[in-house]
Design a protein around this nucleic acid. Sequence first.
DNA 1: GTAATAGTGTCTCTAAGACACTATGCT
DNA 2: AGCATAGTGTCTTAGAGACACTATTAC
Lengths: 260, 260
Amino acid sequence: MKREITTGVRSATAAGRRQAPLAAVVPSFPLPFTTVDVVIFTVLDNNLSVLLVQRPDNRDEPFPKAWALPGGYVDIGRDEDLAACARRKLFEKTAVVSPYLEQLGSWGSANRDPRGWSATHVYFALIPSQGLALAKGANAADVGWSQVDQVLKRHRLAFDHEAILRAAVERLRSKVEYTSLPAYLVEEPFTLPQLQRTYEVVLGRSIDKSGFRTRMLAADFLDEAGYVEGESNRPAMGYRVRDRAVPVVFPRTFSPRHQE
Amino acid sequence: MKREITTGVRSATAAGRRQAPLAAVVPSFPLPFTTVDVVIFTVLDNNLSVLLVQRPDNRDEPFPKAWALPGGYVDIGRDEDLAACARRKLFEKTAVVSPYLEQLGSWGSANRDPRGWSATHVYFALIPSQGLALAKGANAADVGWSQVDQVLKRHRLAFDHEAILRAAVERLRSKVEYTSLPAYLVEEPFTLPQLQRTYEVVLGRSIDKSGFRTRMLAADFLDEAGYVEGESNRPAMGYRVRDRAVPVVFPRTFSPRHQE
DNA sequence: GTAATAGTGTCTCTAAGACACTATGCT
DNA sequence: AGCATAGTGTCTTAGAGACACTATTAC
């Protein structure tokens, strides 16, 4: 988490395409801090879980020992853009390379960080839990998965990270109602019952089996990948998503009867 | 657009609630620039339109004379948070106080601004066109409404504002399929035919009258406000939205048959 | 009366919800 | 055989789409 001091001048490469390039500008007014935070979700033991890191036990740092979302300052020397910065922070914690990554929004205000006016750009990532080994970086003890429900009930997260986590969960749940996002939370090949359990874990309620299967198969985004044994007595068909780049959008939400 | 030089120290007020307040920090590494841009939509003469400002004709400024979205640097002395900054910029251009304002996302990279690494937080606003007088500030000639379709076809906007505008239009169109957002684009009281025309203008296609009326009235978010005459031969019932704070979400999109 | 727009009624279709049913493999 | 889980079929319902119909005003 410690940020190295970079001494380079602002780079203005490849800019100003239709005019003479302008020199990088040294600002004459104070700038906000710019950070990127990542809300990394997975499903662990049938619980929606989020990756948290513990802040250093150092009185000079804000929120010492408190748990926080992984993130940190944008490094204008290393990060080409915001998404690259988010991918870097994700990889540093999980060694996962190409997950589902979506921009959630930004939070910026005078007092969210005691060190001064700061704005954070927040991304959320979905990764399957199997085969996941947290990066054994400097401080593995400071990183861990927590159940989202527990975190929102008990812990007090650093900064405004509780509000950010709530927004991320809300966005995830609402999109899960009409997209195939949970397919990014299970290892391939997965069976339809496994996928359905993932939906149910994220949504926190059960879904009718018949309707679920009809919807998934009618959307025509899954390829059969042979029977998978061992999950239960009867083997089930395994599936892979045809195009992992784009999640599928269904024409309706689940359970429109209960929602306004 | 000229930014005054502010000399104040970073404020750390009301921060560090559960610990001794930390002093504001002077950064030891270069920071990106932080800006806020606003995509302001209205419907003008049955065309979805966006407010653009012309950049100064000054060789020292990037993209001189090019059209751009209204926006600028966050002023950490004046702007309490990002949304307040967006509201300020909206008011400076349109004198509109409390429109529909939603965060669209953020764009940040090393080369989107030739002056250096910058990140912009983008909001989009919906305002009714009637009774709208552009703020007669310093430079009224530099501000104006443009049809979105024309802008995306002909103009070359400054910075990455064309990509931002495309994202804003995409977000608006997709939300209009299943929300009451167009109600923010017409002056109250409005008739259902007026509202339907607004939907059709934003979506760029016609909608069946019967289904439209059924959906709007079944959602139970409109209050009758007496008959409105003069719009056509036959007077039509005028409506006001019951709660302007929250748009209505419909259970399905329009025309699910044609979309994937 | 006609023209123009406001507003309604009817029929069909899609896809979800509920739930009973069959199928397959383990012990 | 009995159990657990995989997978199917059938009936109902909500709400959209298409489109024909009636209603009210100006001229």
